[in-house]
Nucleic acid binder design. Structure first.
Ligand code: MN
Ligand code: MN
Ligand code: MN
Ligand code: MN
Lengths: 218, 218
DNA sequence: AATTAAATTTAGACAAAGCTAAAAATTTGT
DNA sequence: ACAAATTTTTAGCTTTGTCTAAATTTAATT
């Protein structure tokens, strides 16, 4: 299995959100930042290896083998991210690029030992769940902050956009995973939110609120 | 810089033992387990990039840039080996293959933080020196055990052959780096050595003695 | 010095992964 | 229902790194 094949499987998994939807060639091309014609070529190879189901013009879906491979890559990616933050003092906006490389290291023993060193973490630094050895993970019932109503309260449990820009914005505004967020008001005019976090009041744009996951507490 | 280019530079460095000898195409091919014609192709590319000095039929040597790159790969390789042994409980015969992959991860910050996490180790698990950020390392004055005379004593500081077979043999016989080894007798017949290590007596073949480095103490 | 042997390079091919441009299939809009 | 727009595939080309087989250069032996 090449790096490229692994990246395609991961991309297909992410677009399909773990389900078995039929994924379009163009969607994969966009996610992989490549051309549709290149995607078609790779899909044929993956299909040949029984990692995806493919019928011309009808899109692809992962086979069980393909899904299991994708989950293994995601597991490695997220464990390495935890390692970088917890053991090497990286900040959460710096880990993704390096994890993109580390996720392709092939050694079952390495990843098992790493998992143990980190004390079997269940979530990565961005709140995304880490699959176990068998590809199982718990999906927690989270909502976008933007879906909350006034006076709703929730715990910040993840980010939808994990770009460096957004993460740095959160750092600057002292918003971190685990914080309790209360919606004190919503502005009709621009859809912005008035929040209370750790006794501080914030106003955040609708775009910010649409990229923060919370778990409602009451 | 591709993985393959990095591996060639490393191979050339190892064959030349850090000096600036002219290295033959065949020697590189053997080290890389590839064909001489492939080596010629790669040499041309490296020469184009000013990483090696090359004149047709006359062999190659590393330029300063090439040597510096090679040392950076070796630094990463050996730091990862220390990490695997110290932090993930790998044994010293299991680390090389994984380090061959990890050495190609590109992140200056990663390797600096790793160095710090490991408390700036000077030697890898096989006794090989770890270059610092600037490519400097101390060469300790070590000899092969096979060069010692009867009644010489030395501290075991490294292995020449770091194959899994040899390392496992040492484990089985409880010979480890740091042990004090005394040559109590040499057998003319087969060149084997009678040793005393930690109050135990051993007989080892000449081949074993020719693959253990010691630092003479008296 | 001439011949043979060995080392090295060249020529031509291939697989992987990408690209552009053109063709074909599907979807959309009227 | 049919033309237009969009999506997807195909065809052909490129780069990287490898290979085999043949040619060339250098080294070793008579
Ligand atoms: Mn990530
Ligand atoms: Mn990746
Ligand atoms: Mn090694
Ligand atoms: Mn390597």
């Amino acid at each position: 299995m090449t790096h490229s094949e692994e990246n395609y499987l991961k991309a297909i998994f992410h677009i399909g959100k773990g389900g078995v939807n039929d994924i379009s060639t163009n969607a994969i091309a966009e996610q992989m930042e490549t051309k549709p014609s290149s995607v078609t070529d790779m899909i044929k190879k993956l299909s040949e290896k029984n990692l995806v189901n493919y019928k011309k013009y009808k899109g692809v879906s992962l086979t069980d083998a393909g899904k299991s491979t994708a989950l293994s890559i995601i597991r490695k990616h997220r464990l390495w991210e935890v390692f970088l933050v917890e053991k090497l003092d990286f900040s959460w906006d710096e880990v993704h690029e390096v994890a993109e490389q580390l996720e392709h290291i092939k050694s079952e023993k390495l990843i098992d030992k790493l998992d143990k060193l980190l004390d079997f973490p269940k979530y990565d630094p961005h709140g995304d769940p880490i699959p176990d050895k068998n590809g199982n993970f718990k999906v927690i019932d989270k909502k976008l902050l933007s879906e909350l109503s006034v006076n709703d309260k929730g715990i910040c449990v993840g980010v939808k956009d994990s770009s460096s820009q957004f993460l740095k914005f959160l750092d600057k505004n002292k918003i971190a995973l685990g914080d309790v967020i209360e919606v004190t008001d919503k502005e009709d005019f621009d859809g912005s939110f008035q929040l209370k976090i750790n006794a501080n009041s914030f106003n955040v744009s609708n775009q910010i609120a649409s990229n923060l996951f919370v778990q409602i507490t009451e």
